[in-house]
């Protein structure tokens, strides 16, 4: 039960102690690294001349953006291009942070705080889009459809979105990291025979970190764009 003994960073500011858990710290690092990378790559693309033959870098960046765009097109239709920066960033940051378990760090997404913030962010984006495309009157009217007595259910459905998104991600990544922790604890316990763990652990890492990480990153982006697409005008 090591979860209460998670390593954390303590910062002293004027006598107050600020405690930052390792997942949140990793999240900050991933975000900063990605911001720098995206700004640098954005400059490369901005300088490129569309009339000339594209350089290797530009081709790679374009193909990455096209992958995200093709996923988004099925849900958002003609609005897809506007939302590529948002969902593309979420996809890449999510996949990278899910993969951090491979190098022995704690995944940022195994912390409920990080996930809940992302879920609430989605909720705000979706509600803002709904208000913008339907207007306040249409939005309130939409909650009373198809029948007036379904209003509480509709309201609950809207509020459940951030919770269900964040708990899905949290449960998946945390269960993977707990199982890996148990495997390593078992290796320690078995002594010499613990060497057998070296054959089992990589396979489980492949499933719980790589496969699960990619699928959850994809699903998180896909569901967000799906719920956003429902609120956009056609």
């Amino acid at each position: 039960m090591d979860i209460n003994k998670m390593n954390h960073l303590l910062i002293n500011v004027n006598g107050y102690t600020l405690k930052i858990n390792a997942p949140v710290l990793n999240w900050l690092i991933v975000c900063i690294v990605f911001s720098v990378i995206f700004i640098l790559l954005g400059n490369v693309v901005k300088k490129a001349n569309p009339k000339e033959k594209p350089s290797k870098k530009v081709v790679v960046i374009e193909s990455i953006v096209n992958v995200v765009l093709s996923i988004l097109r099925s849900n958002l239709g003609k609005h897809a291009e506007k939302y590529v920066p948002l969902f593309g960033t979420i996809l890449f940051v999510m996949i990278t942070s899910n993969l951090l378990g491979l190098i022995g760090l704690q995944s940022p997404t195994s912390n409920i705080g990080v996930n809940l913030v992302l879920g609430i962010f989605y909720f705000l984006v979706i509600q803002y889009t709904a208000l913008k495309s339907n207007g306040l009157k249409g939005r309130v009217k939409g909650l009373f459809e198809p029948m007036a007595f379904l209003f509480p259910l509709n309201l609950l459905g809207e509020l459940a979105l951030p919770l269900s998104l964040s708990i899905r991600l949290f449960g998946n990544i945390l269960s993977g990291s707990i199982i890996m922790m148990l495997i390593y604890a078992l290796m320690n316990y078995l002594g010499v025979f613990g060497i057998l763990g070296f054959t089992v652990a990589p396979v489980l890492h492949m499933y719980f970190d790589v496969f699960s990480g990619f699928v959850q990153g994809y699903v998180f982006m896909m569901l967000g764009s799906f719920f956003l697409g429902e609120q956009l005008e056609k």
Binding site: I167, R168, G171, N172, S175, V215, Q216, V219, L223
Partner: peptide
């Protein structure tokens, strides 16, 4: 499948 997993994860 990921959606069906949600209830288990709760």
């Amino acid at each position: 499948i990921a959606l069906a997993e949600t209830t288990g994860l709760y």
